[in-house]
Design a protein around this nucleic acid. Structure first.
Lengths: 178, 178
DNA sequence: GCATTAAAGATAGATATCTAATATTAGATG
DNA sequence: CATCTAATATTAGATATCTATCTTTAATGC
């Protein structure tokens, strides 16, 4: 019997035959999980959570968005955005305030501290990206992005169709695994 | 100004410029989210949760695995597997018991009910897969799987390297979004 | 301009995941 | 063969997300 390769020693590698129905879904989930873990690994050294990263990233590009706008952009619910933003205000990354005398909307504005994080965190994301892309040609990366975009659109349409048929759209509870 | 396409009306579509550092990561996460939602949408009509699906799928291929083996296969922790399996036993999908007089290991065995679910649930997964693949050639799908596999391996290596440097590997807390 | 409806946010409670600590059993070693 | 160590499962507690509900404020229609 031949010796196992390095990769095979890892207990994650599937001894298990994968359901044909789920092969692509599984790969996509595992890749997402990989990106998340790789990024969280780096963010934790700066004491920033993944959720905070998501909102920071959005604010660096569009400072002063309302909570509702932020939750939309982040694909997270308002309560989730709410608690994350409260925490980020406590941490001094943002300031929440009203604009134009509208007391309904709560807008989030980056503080000096919040802006400063950008210089620290963006390189970490770049690092993850570079690590992930190793061995993939520019064309391969391009094709990959295109194919992913097609799948995303297909699945969004599926969801819209379901919603149109009156199906309640379920939670996106946390399950990056598998 | 030209009219917006159907797709653009959706509020999810990004008015927001995406961080170059995060473009691929974001696409992968959104695709994973799409798969999860599309599947959950269908599973909920059968009162099966995503977590239960994961374990059922594994057991249909390897009945009688221990809790430890199941959590490995599912890429979930043991407490997570534990509670899921307890619940699945309550629901009558599996039976948990010892084997060979070994009182340490708890093995999970599908009941008739658990096996029967297969005929109902697998078509749903196939449906999701087909929906996701619309418009992608066989070759494109092949390339996509290859590229995803490369990324997964790259990111696993990244994690192993980090672990070797003594970095604590962080949770894979639920954040499929964005 | 007052009353109704809609929008935005806040709060409370549920769920699925995680980490850490504990208990039990099996296997290895002096 | 008695003890130590490792494996497995369990329990307890934290966290990030979700849904549902409530409150406040703005917009709209008579």
């Amino acid at each position: 019997m031949q010796a196992m390769s390095d990769a095979k020693k890892d207990k994650q590698s599937s001894h298990v035959p994968v359901h044909p129905d789920e092969r692509m879904a599984r790969l996509v989930r595992l890749a997402a999980r990989g990106f998340n873990r790789a990024l969280q690994l780096r963010l934790q050294t700066e004491n920033v959570t993944f959720g905070q990263w998501i909102f920071l990233r959005i604010l660096w590009q569009e400072d002063g968005l309302s909570q509702r706008e932020l939750s939309d952009r982040a694909h997270l619910t308002e309560p989730t955005a709410h608690t994350a933003l409260i925490k980020m205000e406590e941490l001094g990354y943002i300031e929440r305030r009203n604009v134009d005398g509208n007391k309904r909307r709560q807008h989030a504005f980056l503080t000096k501290r919040g802006w400063a994080l950008r210089d620290v965190l963006e390189p970490l994301a770049l690092e993850v990206n570079d690590a992930a892309m190793a061995g993939l040609s520019v064309k391969a990366q391009d094709d990959l992005r295109n194919a992913l975009s097609v799948m995303i659109r297909n699945l969004e349409n599926d969801e819209h169709d379901a919603a149109a048929r009156g199906v309640r759209v379920p939670p996106t509870k946390g399950n990056t695994a598998n």
